[in-house]
Nucleic acid binder design. Structure first.
Lengths: 189, 189, 189, 189
DNA sequence: AATGAATGAGATTTCATTCAT
DNA sequence: AATGAATGAAATCTCATTCAT
């Protein structure tokens, strides 16, 4: 092996942070390179283009969120518990890596087109989770898609609220209240 | 003064649609001019710069949403009713002008800096609304900010769900269910 | 109309000259802009890309050569005369605009792929011309394609010879000798 | 010294092919390395720079063509025979290694600057050959340079014609006709 | 008011070459 | 000898803005 690719991770991390903060179009290759401590050309050894870099990052994080939820969905515990688990997992993910989280969440608006159809998307996992709970009679038999969106919306907005200074980090502190609200909301529909 | 700047509206409408679809950085002056049926130079007759155009649009739409909510907040009806009104108003606004709605909602991530501090933001109105309901003992005395975010999150995500084909327009059709879920959620926390 | 596109011709002329001298890959946008007395961006108002500029120039010149030959081919004069006319026309074209001529001739190696199938190529016109002369019994009935190539080769190489200092401009001075050689060659095959 | 730089040949062959197809500026080090099955760095073990590689290839092929012709020129046979020999030699060379042939022929446009002045160039050999034939009274006493160019042009264009699908390989099949045409042409001037 | 050519600054990308491994 | 990551310079292209018409 030649010089090991020590900077690849640095580049991707720098890109992630900048994308989360300034958006994709608002982030230049130069900004990424500077923050990663490399020259602009270095980026192109690892990714064919800026677009390619974005896609790679997105898929990596997107699927990791989906996978996290899928693990909980497949569990045997009662719905209430699993809703609580999901909420906690989401919020903990945000506390651990707010930039990664925000990158995926903010950036998805306008990127889902290029994503593989079979990707394990959070929305897909959540919808399936709700459907199964309905089948088992654990929550009222009503529009599963809507419920999935409501659940998603509540958790996501906590992250957004933190970002704009309306809620306080660590957001894991809101987990119990959000879980309770979510369970109540899903039962009420 | 026979032709009272009809082009100005065309330009702003074109800009709004493109911003909602491609983001601000992803929209070029040329794109706007093309869609509006004018040339690039014409745009500068009506707005000093691209930034200026963005700000104008944002304030107009942002305040109009805030104002709408404020009207409902100031009303005398019981909370449940007013929550229902707000939900209906939000969803109807989305059905009426999805692009305008999305422009404000999506674009706010990263634009609030330039906005006047006293702007009537939806989040601010919602928080005040919740605080008052708590004061009157209509909902449990608990973190008003969190509740405002939860309410916001539920409604917003319905719009996002429609946009990505997971829910069906017109979203006003979901108003009753969302209202019920919201009331339950706010009571549960 | 706004500012008239005074520089378009300058840009194309500059490009043509530079391409002929340095090849396409050897010519940069900056070189073209500099010689044309504009900034680099100006080029992109008139042509979508460097490739596009090349193609436009090529088609324009390529077809004009083809058209010139076609006019002679369609004439009623005896072959010898028309061969002479073609040779003179070719060589005069070189003397008039050596760069345009060389651009087409040198550059065609590797560009014909992108050219419209119905383009009036010199080779096509020449082949048809030879075929008709064979049909009329003016030259021996033998491979018309080969003859077209031989004719082409003799004339072209005169231009190449001038370019590398082995023949003297104006090359029109060689017209009679080349014509005589060409007639003899075509009769001999 | 078991492995005597087999890679060097691979690299040069790959370079030759790519240069012939895409031109020198159109060929990147990476392309060469890839086709040769080595990495970019390896190339610099064998050649100091891209320019160096080009020069090496060009001189090797250029001189070998020149040498081939020189052998025929120095022969004692009558002109007609030797013209026939040259034509056959040229065409056979093309059939044997079209890429090498094209590399030299196409690439020479714009590369002759760096070539040693005493190089045995095909054009030089041909001109001397014609001059001697004139001296001996074998062909009319007229511009030897022009005749050399005409001869060259006829043969070269056969190669070009094959390359663009207007003539059929192996081009050696055209040798007799081309020779006859060449002799006739040279006598006619 | 409007046009759209042209500018100028900066963005993305390419690529010959170097160098740590 | 060989690798391929990284550099640095330069190439292509983009785009908000200005300005002659």
């Amino acid at each position: 092996m030649a010089r090991p690719a020590r900077k690849k991770k640095d580049i991707e991390r720098a890109a992630l942070e900048l994308f989360a903060d300034h958006g994709i179009d608002g982030t230049t290759i130069r900004m990424i390179a500077e923050r990663a401590g490399v020259t602009e050309g270095a980026l192109y050894r690892h990714h064919k283009s800026k677009d390619d870099l974005v896609r790679a990052l997105f898929e990596e994080y997107f699927e990791s969120f989906g996978g996290m939820l899928e693990g909980i969905r497949a569990d045997a515990a009662p719905v209430e518990d699993r809703i609580g688990q999901m909420v906690r997992a989401f919020l903990a993910a945000y506390d651990t890596d707010p930039l990664g989280f925000r990158f995926v969440m903010l950036v998805q608006h306008g990127l889902l087109d290029g994503i593989r159809k079979d990707a394990l998307s959070p929305a897909k996992v959540l919808t399936r989770f709700i459907e199964e709970a309905i089948d088992r009679g654990e929550i009222p038999k009503q529009d599963a898609s809507l419920k999935a969106q409501l659940l998603m919306g509540m958790v996501m907005q906590v992250a957004v609220g933190e970002r704009y200074g309306r809620l306080k980090a660590p957001v894991a502190g809101y987990a119990e209240q959000v879980s309770a609200a979510a369970v109540a909301a899903l039962r009420a529909v």
